[in-house]
Design a protein around this nucleic acid. Structure first.
Lengths: 258, 258
DNA sequence: CAGTGGTCTAGACCACTGG
DNA sequence: CAGTGGTCTAGACCACTGC
């Protein structure tokens, strides 16, 4: 028997329902996740060593290890041999623009991210029903809309609209966005304590309308890739909706299927 | 020290280069992979139990376990508690069409795969340089080209060209393709012993040309999603190039970012 | 050289499956 | 009830990092 399973959640003994047996390491994982959510350890910081955590939770090091393994597999934590285990961050070089799958056609190496921001615009508006639903807000709640145009290798390639809860991102400004040189998600971590963890994307082929064509410097009706991204923090709480229009004449969306 | 590391590969002792320390479980993983490649266990079959494998390789069960864990994470093996560990297969219900990311706009549930095949065509041709390069063949090698049109929920939605080495897929016929009701990748396993393991996709927005438009029943110049897929067997050997044109007016390409 | 993650073992026991 | 994967422990030792 685990040394002290009783100090953690015991499996429910109710009748009728599935036993819902939960292994110790899953419970540890949940506790670690809670600490991440509570910002006990912030992005980029070290968390306690496996032995310390084992002592804290009164389980063996191997059990903590397995919990951390899963969090590392989900990119919530990053292990570094000899140094410790760290809270993952979008600010770190090498994993920046982790969610951007647009690659130049030539040379498999990923771009270093957008090389130039051509335009930033910010509006505040009331969330229509569908947007509110996706962001987990109520219809009419205050929402920020950021529109921006990004250039890759000198040519405008990405036209993006970003929608955020105005409450959660209170104080976000065009100036801050324009001045910040890293990925937006790193800015969200630093300024608002919002760490983005995963995202879903819905991709379609669409025709550029007149305005989009002009901004992206393509002919009207030129085909563009529409990438609708819903981004989640800890807890699977949706925090951002983003709609990108990508030119795919010199770049492509790269995906790896496993 | 591991019980019998000496019977497996010892770390190279050369000077100058990185030590290239390789843990035991990695070596076990490589051995298991070799057995999969050699078709010692075929798709859908059970592999020996962890204890049997531990005895065979003269390591502890935990070490075999870790090797299998990684192969299972890569979807090469599938663990089933109480039953055993099986070689993954595309024929299995629930993982069919694992590489098809097109989803209906309404209802997050994935389609059960293409509901109807409207057309199949097969040609034999000499591989141009670029195709040969991608498939790991020599320019001019004999290649099969399959063209097919698939309908989802009654409307033609996917127009696909598939290129395969004629040598590796000798005997493939339109009749076989048309008659087979499951995914192509399951057919490849059964008829040719080729198990597809992973794939990369390059996605672009393109305009339908006249022929494509007619087949997919859209207006010419309608935007379509172009999905170019390179599919690999064990060993990262490319075995198939596929170019799909997807209508995205009622469906979208779904992607999960972690 | 101390501290951290990484590997490996051996053994106990639990959960699930099928005969 | 036997067999398989799944969990947990305890302890030893290795590889890597930084002081």
């Amino acid at each position: 028997m685990p040394a002290s399973a009783s100090t953690l959640q015991d499996p429910p003994t109710g009748v009728g329902v599935a036993p819902a047996f939960s292994p110790l390491y899953q419970q540890i994982k949940a506790l670690l996740l809670q600490s991440l959510q509570d910002a006990e350890w912030k992005p980029g910081e070290v968390i306690p060593s496996e032995f310390d955590l084992a002592a804290r939770f009164k389980v063996s090091q191997g059990t903590v290890r397995k919990a951390i393994d899963e969090l590392a597999a989900d990119h919530l934590l990053v292990r570094r041999q000899g140094r410790g285990t760290f809270v993952a961050t979008h600010a770190e070089r090498g994993v920046q623009y982790r969610f951007l799958r647009l690659r130049p056609d030539a040379g498999e190496a990923a771009d270093e991210g957008p090389t130039q921001r051509l335009m930033h615009d910010l509006k505040k508006l009331r969330a229509p029903a569908e947007l509110a639903r996706q962001l987990g807000l109520r219809t009419g709640d205050s929402v920020l809309q950021v529109r921006r145009l990004l250039a890759l290798a000198g040519t405008p390639t990405i036209l993006e609209d970003i929608w955020l809860s105005a409450a959660a991102f209170k104080g976000l400004s065009v100036e801050r966005l324009a001045a910040y040189s890293g990925p937006t998600y790193a800015l969200f971590e630093q300024d608002f304590g919002v760490r983005m963890v995963r995202a879903t994307e819905r991709i379609r082929a669409v025709q550029a309308d007149a305005e989009q064509a002009e901004l992206l410097q393509v002919r009207p009706a030129e085909p563009l890739l529409s990438v609708e991204r819903l981004t989640f923090t800890y807890n699977d709480a949706p925090m951002e909706l983003r709609r990108g229009l990508y030119r795919t004449d010199t770049h492509h969306y790269f995906n790896e299927l496993n």
